[in-house]
Design a protein around this nucleic acid. Structure first.
Lengths: 208, 208
DNA sequence: ACCGACTTGTGAACGATCTCACAAGCACGA
DNA sequence: TCGTGCTTGTGAGATCGTTCACAAGTCGGT
């Protein structure tokens, strides 16, 4: 497509936002849109939209703007959402289960292919059509499943151990929900989604 | 304490991380720590730790480092975690319930004082010791509860409507979990925690 | 075929954020 | 009391991210 040189997280995250907004336009049967229209409607920056997109190619038509369908398709390709991604979910507490449920509903490109927990009452049972394995079997089972991404939703105390196991057995990316500062493995792309930190930021603003 | 001039989100989020790390040291009975020790042990930047802290005062002792207990206490004060914060939870699907449960377990400074959902089967029932109200009563009930922060975990289609209601009835901060680009109210400090965007970022790196 | 209205893509200015490197300061022992 | 060794707090510089402003390009009407 274009130049896959070091793209920043911020740009990538905005691409996801753009894609989301464009899909909303598709639903309203809008066929063409300019960067400034997008910016106004969704409270974004027009210049930034153009700069972000420019890093991957020329998707627009000068004088006209962007064809919504085309841009959606391009963004899907850029983000790698045109192929399936196999996920492993580790930790099926209430949060892990909620995430698993969410991922099953969506016919998105993400598909759960393995599930793990330490709770003896859960192991052996099914979540959807998937058997839950004990977390100590991570290293053994993951390689058989083709999972490349893991969703880590275990308690703080277990997070680092599970993370290391995942890294060891060839997982390429981890989305971590545990409120800990993980010691990262160089072979694993790691992102944390931290509820608590965000809440604490809001607390700061309310007491100042 | 010190200067409450425009502190960036990045700094604030790191303060939460530092606090977390320091508490871990407390648990290991470490009493003193230097910025470089912290940095090494938790994969942070020593200079950045000092710069971040310096924005709020002088907490360290030259030649010695920081007293762990003192710094924990200072950070708690800075972040506003020394007083209680009342939360409203809107949307009690699997994610909302998981969050509510998490917030109840922790004797943290966050306390749920109101809960809302649109599901008739849930309204009137209890979550913990709290009665669930219908979402259409948000404007009426929130002011009676003293809630200043709302956790928004409703489906995409309802998010903007609930957000506007919350803004209207005096909520000062919203932590949004719905995968939408919200049209923000100027009176409300808003943060989004977006699972999907983070997953898509990981997908990008796996297919490039 | 040309003009005018519009939009993209992009260098250059600006601003925010992080790293470097060191002066200022503290603790401890001689 | 002084010197050594260590660490903080901080200006100065480097890097990264965003906004500005405009040349280059497209379209539709005349």
């Amino acid at each position: 497509m274009a130049e896959p040189a070091g793209i920043s997280s911020l740009t990538l995250n905005r691409l996801s936002v753009y894609l989301r907004c464009l899909r909303q336009l598709q639903d309203s049967d809008v066929t063409h849109v300019s960067s400034s229209q997008l910016a106004q409607q969704f409270e974004l920056s027009a210049a930034l939209i153009r700069k972000d997109l420019a890093q991957f190619g020329e998707f627009g038509i000068r004088g006209t703007g962007y064809r919504v369908d085309d841009l959606v398709e391009s963004l899907i390709k850029v983000l790698g959402l045109d192929r399936a991604h196999n996920l492993a979910v580790v930790g099926l507490g209430s949060l892990g289960s909620a995430l698993a449920r969410y991922l099953s509903i969506n016919d998105k490109p993400f598909r759960i292919v393995a599930a793990f927990d330490v709770d003896g009452r859960k192991v052996g049972h099914k979540i959807g059509h998937l058997t839950i394995h004990h977390s100590r079997e991570i290293r053994e089972i993951i390689p058989q499943t083709g999972a490349q991404i893991a969703v880590l939703s275990v308690p703080e105390s277990a997070a680092q151990r599970c993370y290391d196991d995942l890294a060891d057995c060839g997982i390429k990316a981890v989305l971590n929900f545990a409120p800990v500062q993980l010691k990262q493995a160089p072979s694993v792309r790691t992102k944390s989604v931290d509820f608590q930190i965000n809440l604490e930021e809001l607390a700061y603003f309310l007491s100042s």
